[in-house]
Simulated scan of single mutants.
Amino acid sequence: MTLILCVSDYWQRRHYYNRLPIQPAGDTDKSQKKAVRRLLLQLDAITGNYWLRELLQQKVLRDQLQAEHKVQILWLSFHPPERDTIDYKFADMLAHTIWEHIEMEHLMSWLSTLGGGFSALGEQFERCAQTAGKISLQQLTIGLRVGDPFLQARCKLYYSISLIQRGQLRQAKQMIRAQYQFAKQHEEHDHRLVRMCLGIWLRLRYEYEERKKRRLTVKCNS
């Protein structure tokens, strides 16, 4: 028989675990009714939580209560502990996570400033455009680690600028289109991303027109 576990919290609300389905009234045979053995434990919330985890995750204590004490319903009544405990391990994990995010934001700010400078110089020097692309890839790595899809999309758009400056227009076009589709699907969360895509797309069109003019000039001169 399954051990039914009932937990009563500070506000006397009841939470049931392993509760058996309720049978219709017509199916109940009064002659077969038997007394149900209950066990009430009044515990502070900290100790009670350990009991609850043990009963839900392990079978040893449940089997022992049923086999040796014939308990069918276990009632855990929680009351506030005399002292509140601090979860130092979780606090350290949370502090480390917050510190890591702060450092990443700081690093992203520096990379954005540095990448913007190299991107501006990339209009004249291909080597600077390559460096700006590498910086964008570093930013993308950070975005992947943070798990922010919008940050990842922005980094890919920065990288597409580097591709345009280096003349890799087809690859840049595919990347911008992919980010534009993502931006339109999530436009309500980040309006800037759509505008970034449209702005870089205009730059890409300009480069295509300039390339077409150069080819016509070469063809006419030849």
Rank of each mutant, 00 (worst) to 15 (best):
L41I: 13
E209R: 15
C128F: 10
S162K: 04
N49C: 02
G122M: 02
V71F: 02
D92Q: 14
R127C: 02
Y50S: 08
H106G: 08
F150I: 10
D148V: 06
L3C: 12
Q171P: 00
I73K: 05
I142L: 11
C197N: 09
V146Q: 04
Q168S: 11
A35P: 00
S160M: 01
V194S: 05
A172E: 04
L198N: 11
L111K: 02
L169S: 04
Y158I: 00
S222F: 04
F90R: 13
F182K: 03
G147N: 05
C6A: 15
L3G: 06
P24E: 13
I46F: 07
A178S: 13
S119C: 13
R215A: 13
Y206V: 01
D44M: 06
T113L: 09
R166I: 02
Q139E: 06
P81R: 08
V60F: 06
C155M: 11
Q168I: 06
L202N: 11
Q58H: 15
H101G: 00
P21T: 10
G167M: 13
R127Q: 15
Q165D: 08
G115S: 07
R177D: 14
L107M: 09
S109H: 07
V218T: 14
C128Y: 07
A120G: 03
D27K: 12
I73R: 10
K34A: 14
T28I: 15
A35T: 11
S112E: 10
Y206M: 12
R14Y: 04
L40T: 12
Q168C: 10
